[in-house]
């Protein structure tokens, strides 16, 4: 893999994060209403509001505020929360691991099950299994994620009492949220694996491999699946963002203490610095996942390395 390609991807990543930060900064300043009043709360005399305005630097011109914001970015300083009056980063930091854990587990589960189901449906095309997976993936795309979460909770936590209904703890707490989150991704992965494998199976090199007498399973895994993997890796990188979006809702269903719930609470409270920080951190994770899926593609497909 060439160093130049990696640097180029890395440059694109940093640029995306920077642009998102700038865009959210200005979007948050477009909000009608007075931030100083929001920080001060209701029924506070105007002098206090004015003092807060000066103290928080909100009386300065926009470009000065923007300069200060940019200065803080490299050191990870994302401003001060309107709600807790403490640095936003202190709010965000403890939320990162839970969200990361949930998203990666959801993604891992759906990749394993989705690849397996897609591969099996392609081999057993037209059988009841194929139909079953097709129905399951259609449902996975159509059912609202929070609804599935509540129903799973109702069944496995409230009725059967096999799993905890919500909160953060050992691995058992992770099962329901990650299955809920992964359902949609499972649907798209299984569909895509199926069609990619079916397409590859018709290629000449598969026929050659079979003609050479390569064992059936080896043809499937070594030849077909590897070639079908390219679009799947690309989509996985892109879908990571959608999973993070889904995590926002899933976290609220299962009282999972992650970024999503922090963002929802901040939106409700109009805590703009925290909303802004959440957006920047989530955008950075999405850009990072695209970066890694690009690198992975480069290592899977030697043809891409020439570009």
């Amino acid at each position: 893999m060439r160093l130049g390609q990696v640097t180029r991807h890395l440059g694109a990543l940093l640029l995306t994060v920077f642009l998102v930060s700038v865009a959210t900064f200005f979007a948050m300043r477009m909000v009608p209403g007075d931030p100083a009043r929001l920080i001060a709360g209701q029924d506070v005399p105007p002098e206090v509001v004015e003092a807060i305005r000066v103290q928080w630097g909100l009386d300065r011109p926009l470009y000065v505020q923007f300069g200060k914001f940019l200065q803080g970015l490299p050191s990870g300083s994302l401003g001060t929360s309107y709600r807790t009056k403490s640095p936003v980063w202190d709010e965000v930091k403890p939320r990162l691991l839970p969200t990361f854990l949930l998203t990666v587990t959801g993604m891992g589960l759906s990749l394993v099950f989705g690849l397996g189901a897609g591969l099996l449906s392609a081999i057993r095309r037209g059988t009841w299994f194929d139909t079953f997976i097709a129905v399951l993936s259609t449902l996975g795309i159509s059912l609202p994620v929070f609804w599935v979460g509540i129903l799973l909770m109702m069944l496995f936590a409230a009725r059967l009492r096999w799993l905890p209904s919500g909160g953060f703890g050992d691995w058992r707490y992770l099962i329901l949220p990650s299955f809920t989150l992964g359902l949609g991704f499972f649907a798209s992965i299984s569909r895509m694996t199926r069609s990619a494998v079916l397409e590859v199976l018709q290629d000449d090199f598969i026929r050659t491999a079979k003609a050479k007498g390569v064992p059936h399973l080896r043809v499937l895994f070594k030849h077909a699946l590897r070639n079908a993997l390219l679009p799947i890796v690309t989509i996985s990188g892109l879908e990571f963002g959608r999973l993070l979006g889904g995590a926002v809702i899933t976290e609220s269903v299962f009282a999972w203490p992650g970024m999503g719930r922090l963002m929802v609470d901040s939106v409700k409270f109009r805590d703009y610095p925290t909303v802004q920080a959440c957006v920047i951190v989530l955008a950075a994770s999405i850009a990072l996942s695209t970066f890694f899926s690009d690198l992975l593609n480069l290592s899977i497909d030697p043809r891409l390395r020439k570009g």
Partner: peptide, 10 residues
């Protein structure tokens, strides 16, 4: 690439 629900939340 940014999740639509987050965009909508903003």
């Amino acid at each position: 690439a940014f999740p639509r629900i987050l965009l909508a939340m903003v």
